[in-house]
Design a protein around this nucleic acid. Structure first.
Lengths: 338, 338
DNA sequence: GTGAAAGCGCTAACAG
DNA sequence: CTGTTAGCGCTTTCAC
């Protein structure tokens, strides 16, 4: 025998039909325990592996799901990927990773992968659907798509998220409680909802405390290290720089702190900084970063569970699933100097 | 028409044969520019997507490659993934990400994915082949597999790597040049070759400088943050702790520095630390980490290029491709105190 | 409990 | 240049 063995080869070797082999291999109850054992044994002996393309074609399923993120480079998503994968594996699904790099065309490509049979369902963490006019409209209604971490209003897809507004408010309230009054905010990319939510939490806390938000106190970033430094630079070029900064994610917070150090400002001595995400390294950073912790593991697990439910035709929550996020107070926040 | 459109539907709508549609869609030269245009247009109109399972079954290729790493959580691999993906995409391949978490069973599963048609080729960065007795022996000789970053002696697969011994030696020589004599090394997981190479570089540099390696000066780690802290703790429980540490990767170096801070030792004032990898955050860390920079982008690009060559039946380098790694001297190294 | 036969959607000979 | 035909390897009726 040459080439990879097929079901037919096993059948021939055993003098049974291909159908029986197929059934035995898939643990069908329609086959004797004994035949099953014999089939499994020769399959093993022949080093047989079922051809996935053939199976997928026949069953019209890929047993794979797609997880699409804005930036694989962000370790934050990786932790979620891990729990998504664990949950998926337990149900027999594998996980394909999609990375958009914020490129709308690539988002469209990933949507296409649902339709062309690459994957059966999808977890989206990109904060927006491709082209408002809508690649997702090509998907059948009720398509197995779950939105995690971000919000896509009116999409009709289930959501798993945290309350970004409340978490941000709590972070800023912490700074206010320490006595800060000149508090700035480095935003994520706008007008994405997640970024807007975090900014809104900041604004709410400021307003409730009766604090003004001076011109230039809301510089924009894009969640990347460098943009945190750049935004921070803009802040400290102001006539009245802040004594505290709430940064929309940890990575930018690292960049901001790095910049502050460069211009000779001590954190938290001169300036307090709060981040958002609680990355793996945030605690080992110096000073250990005060930040908002997100329940990454739960987010992934819940999102995947809902997706699995959709994939098996079950009911899914119509209301967003909102998980708790908590402020972790560490070493980058302190009372203002004066 | 109900359900997803197939090639047949387009053919019917246009009054041509399915074969023509297939050809038009794949830009075959065997079809008029005009027919091609018409086909493309109705395909677009019908919102057609070719079924990948059917295509893969027919062509016996998946146009996907698998990149398997030890730990997706390590940002180091992500940068490589990005360049692998860019190179793969340019050639029409997509990339599947495999994560073994150092579990040999999972490595075997990924090998199986080559045989069951999930992927056409594979880039391995796990440092060892599954079960010495050998899952890879199930693969046909000359299987499209490239080993990156690590070495699998005698496997016969092409390798893309850096010279870990030389790079480590350079790192330790830097510490020696600063005047350190009590230099310790926190290793990666042994007996993996990459970890062993880095340790050997350390030993060579020490020996050449005529420096002894005291008992306990080579604590083991596993490349994770926490193990760096733990190994460091062991080091500073010694009667004569080191004045400098060469750590086998940045993540453990972060952990070690964090621990040193915890026990009141200043870096680099009291202790110098050198890492390995040059992670994205290493420069933003405080103090900025002195470390060995690896050419991540080139590693990914080269590995994928070689894989593509194998996939198209071309010749591949028999000798390992060795890329340069360079020491980046930053803020965690200084002369010893006394 | 097992076998025979059909067909998933596509591409690649082979004719014309 | 286009159409006809066959078949990739598997699963799943439908018979028995």
């Amino acid at each position: 025998m040459t080439g990879r063995p097929k079901i037919k080869d096993i059948a021939a070797a055993l003098g049974v039909s291909p159908a029986t082999v197929s059934r035995a291999l898939s643990d069908s109850a329609l086959v004797t325990a004994e035949t099953r054992a014999r089939v499994r044994q020769t399959a093993e002996a022949l080093n047989y592996r079922p051809n996935v393309s053939a199976r997928n074609l026949r069953t019209a399923r890929s047993m794979a799901v797609l997880m699409v993120v804005r930036d694989v480079g962000n370790p934050f998503y990786l932790d979620i990927l891990k729990s998504v994968e664990a949950t998926a594996r337990a149900a027999g699904y594998s996980v394909l990773m999609g990375n958009t790099e914020n490129d709308p065309e690539r988002e469209v490509e990933y949507f296409d992968m649902l339709r062309d049979g690459h994957a059966d369902g999808m977890i989206l963490m990109t904060g927006k659907l491709p082209r408002a006019d809508g690649a997702h409209h090509k998907l059948p209604p009720g398509a197995p798509v779950v939105i995690a971490l971000e919000t896509i209003a009116g999409s009709g897809f289930p959501h798993v998220q945290i309350d970004n507004v409340a978490a941000s408010r709590a972070a800023v309230e912490h700074l206010i409680a320490l006595g800060h009054r000149r508090i700035a905010h480095i935003t994520g990319p706008l007008p994405e909802i997640m970024s807007a939510d975090r900014r809104d939490g900041y604004r709410q806390a400021m307003q409730e405390a009766g604090l003004a938000i001076p011109e230039g106190y809301e510089p924009n970033g894009n969640y990347l290290l460098h943009s945190g430094a750049a935004a921070c630079e803009a802040l400290f070029a102001l006539a009245e720089p802040p004594t505290a900064i709430f940064v929309a994610n940890d990575e930018m917070a690292f960049g901001a702190i790095h910049h502050l150090r460069g211009i000779g400002r001590d954190v938290p001595g001169d300036v307090s900084v709060v981040g958002f995400d609680d990355l793996y390294l945030s605690e080992a950073f110096y000073p250990p970063l005060t930040t908002v912790h997100q329940p990454r593991f739960d987010i992934g697990r819940q999102a995947m569970s809902i997706l699995l439910k959709m994939l098996s035709g079950g009911q899914v929550p119509l209301e967003p699933v909102v998980l708790p996020a908590t402020l972790r107070i560490r070493g980058t926040t302190a009372p203002p100097k004066s």
